[in-house]
Write a protein that binds this DNA or RNA. Structure first.
Lengths: 144, 144
DNA sequence: ATTATTGCAAAGACTTTGCAACTCC
DNA sequence: GGAGTTGCAAAGTCTTTGCAATAAT
């Protein structure tokens, strides 16, 4: 089921289906925490200890280029990845390095409308990213 | 004149004024190209060949922490810096790694209003970054 | 069978660190 | 004078690369 979807995604991109690619994409789909390459490597190697680090980097790179996944921007220079390709935004914690998904059709619409109306001189926008930076308010609640 | 402003900025942040810090801030202020640490090092060392690489990294880090400058997010994991601290946005070229400043009060206002109205559950936004990704249209014009 | 993909290990790129020497206030 | 900074070089972290071996179509 899930496995089938994963294979399909890889195939649709014109890539060969390999256990390595399945493992990487699976790991990424089954998390919502926007992991670093390192974290993906850890998860993948739990199940397939023989998959090479370099391979995982290569796969991630290939997936990004073919838009199966996306890179999430970070301030510190460590790549993080996201298996969700539909339009959404991100909440960045300033206290730790947590990044959460943020869906709001209204915000998306707002920006889309803006981009339609305003003509930026000499520049054609094909995509955009919005980072909302701040604090998660209820971290402490978990203690009770 | 410029030099005086630069010194003042450093002083205002509670830092000692050193030739190294002046050189780094000067280099950053006198460019609009959002340079990498490497590019800053190159510029700085043209004038002061004895300034150490590690020092420049340290200074950049200090400046970012004290908000004299900001980091610009990138997809590839190389830090880039920006001496402009007033609110503005960025245009990212997909063809090369050019990043240009984009000022539009209307866009800023749009987002500010949105953030005032919409209450994001469990999250308080203190800052945001917008990346507009696309192509600079007139690259070719330069050829004529 | 053919070509893409992987494993491995080494190299590369970028950044951080520790500490003695130095310099700004 | 004394705390804050710097220079240096080494180490650290993250990522890329080259190529023979392997696996997918």
């Amino acid at each position: 089921m899930k496995e089938k979807n994963i294979k399909q995604k890889i195939k649709d991109a014109g890539l060969r289906i390999t256990p390595q690619r399945i493992a990487v994409l699976e790991a990424l789909i089954n998390t919502n925490s926007h992991p670093t390459a390192d974290q993906i490597i850890e998860v993948v190697q739990k199940g397939h200890s023989n998959i090479a680090v370099g391979t995982i980097y290569n796969i991630l790179d290939t997936f990004v280029k073919l838009k199966i996944i996306t890179k999430v921007n970070t301030d510190n220079n460590i790549a993080r990845f996201d298996a969700i390709t539909e339009q959404h935004h991100h909440l960045y914690s300033i206290d730790d390095d947590k990044i959460e998904d943020y869906y709001d059709e209204k915000l998306t619409q707002l920006i889309d409308d803006y981009l339609k109306e305003s003509n930026i001189p000499n520049f054609r926008v094909t995509n955009y990213k919005i980072q909302l930076i701040g604090n998660f308010a209820d971290n402490d609640k978990k203690r009770f």
